[in-house]
Amino acid sequence: MAVKVAKDTSFSAAIRRVFLRARPETKAYLQLSPGLILVAGALLVPLALLILASFWSSHSGGEIDTSFTLANYEKLLERPGYAMILLRSIGIAASVTLVTLVLAYPLAYFVAFDVRKHKLIWLILITLPFWTSYLLRVFAWKVILGWNGAINSGLTSLGVIDEPFGFLLYNPLSIVITMSHAWATFAILPIYLSLEKIDRNLLDAAADLGDGPLKRFFRVTLPLSMPGVLAAAVIIFIPTVGDYITPAMVGGPDGMMVSNLIQAQFSKANNWPLGAAVSVVSITSVAMLSFVFVASVRALTARIR
């Protein structure tokens, strides 16, 4: 028998023992912590402070009074203008979501089922425009839709119309056109992923059981791709309600949205407690709406099945 050396009792060995025996989970959480600190410090704390600030008030000189008040919320309730802008924002965002999904679905379907060889190329082509500056894409739409813009000048110079279309820019329509373009990738990819996951045997089975192509689509393909559609709807709806650049650039006075209101309070009006209150109201109402939407769609699809 070899002579056994007794356990190393030094302090450093004790530390090593503790570290070596630490559960992998502990080490994992340790590695996760810097990122979580970033999210907490730059997102959660500021959001909390924003909520807090919505209960403050601002004097005419721009001085901030940090005593608790509900005045900002009362103001939002009293003046119908605020509610109208919020409702308009929600209405525009809902239309954008609907239009984007309806346009995106056939393309996602095409890439998932019809494209064989060049799937990757299609996917890269779809994602590429998304990576270009949002500001520039909105700006480009302004250039395209304007009174003297590409469409109007193009059509006039071709002699198709005598007078430029005025309805193309500075209204909710132009916002919907611009946004449904900007968010297309976010609709196509989730729908594509959920279509791609569908077991092709299921479709063959449905066909085998006597379903025609259309029936098969509505009874098998569409329900199975619903999770992707739902995810896309939420991903598009939430940020579009609060989008700033698009309404500011192509919305005009009739296309003013809630974010323009917020921005105004933080700059020109210099009443950022009120701006904070508008932010809180819009975020909570959007979150609640999305929740109700997802829950009801889930309940609906569950009943159909």
């Binding site: 002579v3 007794a6 190393d8 004790a14 090593r16 023992r17 070596l20 025996r21």
Partner: peptide, 22 residues
């Protein structure tokens, strides 16, 4: 090998306690 550590008990390799050896 030292890729796992026991909950209790000891391991000796060549007479040396491997308790705190990575």
């Amino acid at each position: 090998a030292g890729l796992e550590f026991s909950d209790s008990g000891s391991l000796f390799i060549d007479g040396k306690n491997m308790d705190a050896v990575p």
